[in-house]
Write a protein that binds this DNA or RNA. Structure first.
Lengths: 216, 216, 216, 216
DNA sequence: TATGAATGAGACTTCATTCAT
DNA sequence: AATGAATGAAGTCTCATTCAT
């Protein structure tokens, strides 16, 4: 009489992610991990935040570690894809594009919980080597490459001075990454810090610093 | 002369060195905390690293938390005092002084384990609010102030363009702090990253970015 | 119907009995605390005695100390309420009532593990001041009052000689409390000690001691 | 060349006589054990109380356990010997002798730290079986015997009614032991308790209870 | 699928005991 | 003999993980 029972495919798991539960859990986990870090986060808290029970977490994720990794990998690729997407739509001076990118990133990343991911990676990289590799290759190097190409373009267009575009890209990205990290570390204690003011001036200095002299 | 009593008890498990212990333990703790973070660090590891037993830690520090706080407070103030000291001895253009400061910091902080403290603070600030306050006031704001004054001086001297010196200071400090953090997070996985190259270009861009146009 | 699956998981380590656990744990704790005292009791022992794991204890009680306090409060108040209850139902001479009370107490307290509580309080009072206060007010003074009233009644009825009923109550209670304490201290080593013989003679002497002379 | 240096004699310091050390330690230990119990007593406290260092304890006593046992054995035998001594010197009615014994015991035991030993034995008997045996044989049974003989004498003299002298002895001793225990447990919290009042009435009732009727 | 009671490995911390000084 | 720094076994408590319901 058990013939009627629909066989359950283990492999279905990945596809069920499309439903709400996993996303809700990941969002809750992002929020908690971002603030407290990996070890100081209790799974009960994540569960409560996600509105499910502790046990449910394990229906979707193998372990705390797996959840952590999933949080990073899941949120990170859209984050960067968005940036690339936006860049491709843009036509105008490289300088303007870069300012524009920062603005876009400011609203779509910095002011969302996505910026917590940066802090998480910084804090836990040495405890999660494979995650660190994944992040480095799929996020950092991809972003560097993307920005380096922009800068290269600016140089070719005669907007920017000649320089090592790889490291210029890093210099450009630093204030962005740094403010994201700051948001989830010392910003809550630092009342005198206006993150936009910081970003604006940093970008202004950067752009001035790589522009051709006569264009200042 | 006195060569008779040169028996060295190196191999013995028992040593009585009340004077040296705290420093040894703090150094070991800095090392371990820097890499693993607060929670992932086991006190046995710190003890082993310091060459003492678990219990000895508690002769000198009240708790794991107290040890962590002590590590930050102990190493951090000399770190910044050195920088100020060095600046005061300097006479020359502001630009040169700032390059010089970076070089000095590079050898005295970045290339030592002291740079681990930055990562620790980033990672654990929200779990140690009082430590965060301490660090913010005694390190970050003090450093900002110090650099802001330098930049102000540069502006008055006509070297730098007019700008908000407070935020320019932050922009100047960002690459330094960032590379320190990087050392203890993703640098070990990032073979293509030459920290000196990064620092040099960042500083070059920064200086160019705040110089008066005609001086580029 | 479904007879095939009648496997009984009696031997299984896993049981879900949220309702019964607290009582089971408290009983186990009473038993262990009574014999060994607070400090010498290991929570693993209590857990094993209760048939649960170490961690389960912490689902129901905040700490070892909290468990100890709960043991006292849970078992002690019913213990005394019973005595009062029994007294109120009684009609007869005060003397007989008091003999009767001792008998009742003998079977309902002395011969059960409840008598261990007395020893616990004696042994740990100075280490748990608030528990001591609680016990003194809610158990000892209440009992003294109850017995003092009985003696007062006996005096008014002309059964007992005039005396300080407060202290007479204490004198009456002493052999009872003492035999309870004895049970959980030296009785196991004292083969020549018949607790009933002791109680009987003590009560006999007490009653004779407070009776009016001509009634001896 | 250092021959000129005057040798410094460490021994110049004033030393307390080393013969006193064990007694000082035992007294300190009695004090601490009495109040806190065996496990809650830290040897550092005992050492501090005795005015010596932790290590010195181990020059005179093998272990914490050995110290505890020694405290009991050392103080206990003189305690009982004194009682016997006093009894032998006495000539008069048994009744008076017994009152007198209580008074003597009150000043020489109850009001000294010796009374702490009773509580210690009650609390720790089951954790120290061999100590319990020692105490039972050398203190309790010896005392019972001593008192039982007195009562027997009183019976033979026609002062006391016929009764089981063994248990009458226990009944007589109970209030004494109980008040000693009380001193080191709940007395500090029990302001309404006058230990002398208690003892007086208890003895009065006891004596009345075993006197021949016509003598009341 | 979902729950949360139950588990137990593991970490911090204490303190009796040891031993170099 | 005396000290107290150093040790490490052992106990409390936490929390990721499991599994009966």
């Amino acid at each position: 009489m058990g013939a009627v029972h629909s066989t359950v495919h283990k492999s279905c798991r990945w596809h069920r992610r499309k439903e709400d539960r996993p996303a809700e859990i990941l969002t809750a986990a992002l929020k908690t991990f971002s603030v407290k870090g990996f070890a100081a986060t209790k799974l009960v808290e994540v569960a409560k935040e996600a509105g499910v029970s502790k046990g449910t977490l394990y229906l979707y994720f193998e372990s705390k570690e797996a959840l952590f990794k999933e949080v990073v990998s899941e949120f990170v690729l859209p984050q960067i894809a968005k940036a690339e997407e936006h860049a491709e739509q843009y036509s105008g001076s490289t300088k303007e594009l870069m300012f524009n990118l920062v603005d876009h990133w400011r609203t779509h990343v910095l002011e969302t919980e996505l910026s917590g991911i940066s802090k998480m990676m910084i804090a836990e990289a040495s405890n999660f080597p494979d995650l660190a590799h994944f992040y480095l290759e799929n996020v950092i190097q991809r972003t560097r490459h993307f920005v380096a190409n922009l800068i290269e373009l600016g140089i070719q267009r005669g907007e920017f001075r000649k320089c090592n575009s790889q490291y210029a890209a890093r210099a450009f990205l630093t204030p962005m990454v740094f403010s994201a990290i700051w948001q989830y570390s010392l910003a809550p204690f630092d009342e005198s810090y206006d993150i936009n003011e910081y970003l604006n001036l940093s970008m202004d200095i950067f752009i001035r610093g790589i522009l051709k002299e006569n264009q200042g």
